[in-house]
């Protein structure tokens, strides 16, 4: 998932200057056209359609759909879920990357596989597992009921499901980066008398900040947009347990298409902002990784 900005990492014009190993102009043009057509049909058109449909009944209907109390409540709940899930996963990601990259220990691979697992699991399963633990007939169900606590069909369940599906994002970005950076900068800081916290804050953190931010952006986009897992645990109680994506579904199923697309357009906008931020960060993050890889290569040579 760590995408690469090709146009930034390779000085673009190499191809043109080397006639011997490129294709004929017509073929190049055809391939570019085919690729762009594919991206256009599958990505651009749906994106454009979201905004077009959102405004199909005019500005006023658009604004009305967004300012309606249920919509506002969905916004708030989405922000709460992301606001809890992202920081939790950031702390986890940093801790996991620190332990996995700065030390050697047995069972490392097991932990790495477990960290990857939420990416491989269907969102519906992500919801299901929490229902099985916390639901009324789940492991802790009776106990929760006794103490008048509800997790499933309530906000805590939504937060948990969101945490699960966004669990690997930060750790996955940091582990390769910190692996390549090695431990010598931290060791240098320690020989100079820095404490553990000073070493982390003044040496490690600045060198991973772009990667960290990159992970946070991706984590946040998924947290705000998650549908399947949240849908399973939410119970779809309007104005209570509806996040933005669930609100879109409800409106759509009630044939309020313009309103559904209006709310969807907010999420689409979030996606576009995410992509812009991501492209920018990728450049910075990629540079850090290349430098680290460069240093690692130097180390191997000698």
């Amino acid at each position: 998932m760590s995408g690469v900005m090709s146009s930034l990492s390779t000085p673009g014009n190499v191809v043109v200057s080397r006639r011997a190993v490129t294709e004929a102009a017509w073929l190049r043009g055809l391939l570019i056209a085919l690729a762009l057509a594919f991206l256009g049909v599958f990505l651009v058109v749906p994106l454009v359609l979201v905004f077009q449909e959102a405004f199909s009944k005019g500005w006023q209907a658009y604004l009305a759909a967004l300012t309606e109390p249920d919509a506002w409540h969905a916004v708030k709940l989405t922000l709460i879920a992301a606001g809890l899930a992202v920081p939790l996963n950031v702390v986890f990601g940093v801790a996991a990357a620190w332990s996995l990259t700065k030390f050697h220990f047995r069972g490392k691979q097991v932990l790495i596989t477990l960290i990857d697992l939420p990416f491989a699991v269907s969102p519906v399963i992500a919801g299901l597992i929490y229902v099985l633990v916390f639901g009324s007939r789940g492991w802790l169900g009776p106990w929760l009921e006794e103490h008048n606590l509800s997790i499933i069909y309530a906000v805590p369940g939504i937060v948990l499901a969101t945490v699960f599906v966004t669990f690997p994002f930060v750790a996955r970005e940091l582990i390769p980066l910190m692996q390549e950076q090695g431990v010598s900068q931290e060791e240098a800081a320690l020989t100079l008398g820095a404490s553990g916290w000073q070493t982390f804050r003044r040496v490690t953190l600045p060198s991973i900040k772009w990667g960290l931010l990159y992970g946070i952006i991706l984590c946040n986009a998924r947290a705000m947009g998650e549908f399947g897992a949240v849908s399973v645990v939410s119970g779809h109680i309007r104005g209570k347990t509806n996040t933005l994506p669930l609100h879109v579904e409800i409106l759509y199923n009630e044939y309020q298409f313009a309103a559904a697309f209006a709310v969807a357009s907010m999420l689409a906008l979030l996606a576009v902002v995410t992509l812009v931020a991501k492209s920018f960060l990728e450049f910075k993050h990629q540079r850090d990784r290349e430098r680290a890889a460069h240093a690692a290569a130097r180390q191997e040579v000698s």
Binding site: Q185, E187, A188, T191, S207, A295, Q299
Partner: peptide, 11 residues
């Protein structure tokens, strides 16, 4: 301690 690859703080 002077490290083999210097370990200067890049930032």
């Amino acid at each position: 301690f002077v490290f083999q690859h210097y370990a200067l703080f890049r930032h």
